[in-house]
Computed example of a mutant assay.
Amino acid sequence: MTTHLTTDIAVGLDGVTRTYRSRAGDVHALRGVTHAFARGSFTAIMGPSGSGKSTLLQVAAGLDRPTRGEVVVGGQPLGAMNQTGLTKLRRTAMGFVFQSYNLLDALTAAENVALPARLAGRRVRRAAIVDALRQVGLEGKARRRPPELSGGQQQRVAIARALHLQPEVLFADEPTGALDRSSGRQVLELMRAVADEQRQTVVMVTHDPLSASYAHTTLFLEDGLVVGRLDRADATQIAAAMSDLERR
């Protein structure tokens, strides 16, 4: 895949297979997935339970190694990297947002945002921290600690932390799963703005058609294969496609 990559592709998967060994036999989580995530795109990944959604995200982010195939992020093939190189790339080129916020209660919002940079040994610029919090609408909450914030505000701090170092790709796994509808909408609008205005790439796993409707594209997985795609679809269209998958 390296030979066809263009500067418009943030993450590329070429024939990616992921097989897990178990006593009951091999489990094929991914079966030869090929897909390119364009720069500045927001892609939702959906599918029935066990379809390979989270495995796809983990392999694309270098958190898991494919059994076969190639993953390229920012023009760099992950298969050629050792663990140290992968860790460095994840800290500089990728941001992560999960259902659990993973904030440290003893740190302020600003200190939580700065933490990845400090762990990477990079200089922390206060102006960049303030800008990251402003981007998520929390510039007035910099000194608050997570227990003093609502769930939606905590998730926005987590997004500010992920965006602080301006990664090429933001990976999100069920980022609104623990939020109420209003807070979830704010988080989804923010991720859409990151793609539209900052030209950063967002890859989000979700089970919720309404959440997926904020994305430019929805990919559907079944049994480790990409079996469908909808572009700029609304929640009703996405829900209908999921129902078709589940009836098969």
Score class of each variant (00 low, 15 high):
residue 2 T to G: 12
residue 4 H to C: 11
residue 5 L to D: 14
residue 8 D to Q: 14
residue 9 I to Q: 13
residue 10 A to N: 02
residue 11 V to L: 13
residue 13 L to V: 02
residue 13 L to F: 00
residue 17 T to Y: 15
residue 17 T to N: 13
residue 17 T to M: 14
residue 19 T to H: 15
residue 22 S to R: 12
residue 26 D to W: 05
residue 31 R to C: 14
residue 34 T to H: 08
residue 35 H to D: 09
residue 37 F to W: 10
residue 38 A to F: 09
residue 41 S to D: 07
residue 42 F to Y: 09
residue 43 T to Q: 13
residue 44 A to S: 14
residue 46 M to S: 08
residue 47 G to Q: 01
residue 48 P to T: 10
residue 50 G to P: 02
residue 51 S to G: 12
residue 52 G to F: 11
residue 52 G to S: 05
residue 52 G to L: 04
residue 54 S to T: 15
residue 55 T to W: 04
residue 56 L to H: 03
residue 61 A to M: 01
residue 62 G to P: 04
residue 65 R to I: 12
residue 67 T to H: 07
residue 70 E to T: 13
residue 72 V to L: 13
residue 80 A to W: 02
residue 80 A to H: 05
residue 83 Q to A: 15
residue 84 T to N: 10
residue 91 R to S: 11
residue 94 M to D: 01
residue 97 V to M: 05
residue 100 S to L: 10
residue 102 N to L: 05
residue 103 L to A: 02
residue 103 L to W: 14
residue 103 L to D: 02
residue 104 L to G: 01
residue 105 D to M: 04
residue 106 A to E: 15
residue 106 A to I: 14
residue 109 A to H: 05
residue 111 E to P: 00
residue 113 V to M: 00
residue 115 L to M: 09
residue 116 P to E: 01
residue 119 L to R: 09
residue 121 G to V: 00
residue 124 V to T: 07
residue 129 I to D: 02
residue 130 V to R: 15
residue 130 V to K: 07
residue 133 L to P: 00
residue 133 L to D: 04
residue 135 Q to T: 09
residue 136 V to Q: 08
residue 137 G to Q: 08
residue 137 G to I: 04
residue 138 L to F: 05
residue 140 G to C: 10
residue 140 G to H: 14
residue 141 K to A: 15
residue 144 R to F: 14
residue 145 R to D: 05
residue 153 Q to M: 09
residue 155 Q to S: 08
residue 155 Q to T: 05
residue 157 V to F: 12
residue 163 L to E: 11
residue 163 L to R: 11
residue 167 P to G: 01
residue 173 D to K: 01
residue 181 R to F: 07
residue 183 S to T: 08
residue 183 S to F: 07
residue 191 M to K: 09
residue 191 M to A: 06
residue 197 E to G: 10
residue 198 Q to W: 13
residue 199 R to W: 04
residue 199 R to A: 13
residue 202 V to M: 10
residue 203 V to W: 11
residue 203 V to G: 05
residue 206 T to H: 03
residue 208 D to T: 10
residue 210 L to V: 15
residue 212 A to M: 05
residue 216 H to W: 01
residue 217 T to Y: 04
residue 223 D to W: 06
residue 225 L to M: 15
residue 227 V to K: 00
residue 229 R to A: 04
residue 233 A to F: 01
residue 234 D to S: 06
residue 234 D to A: 08
residue 234 D to M: 06
residue 235 A to K: 03
residue 244 D to G: 10
residue 245 L to A: 00
residue 245 L to P: 02
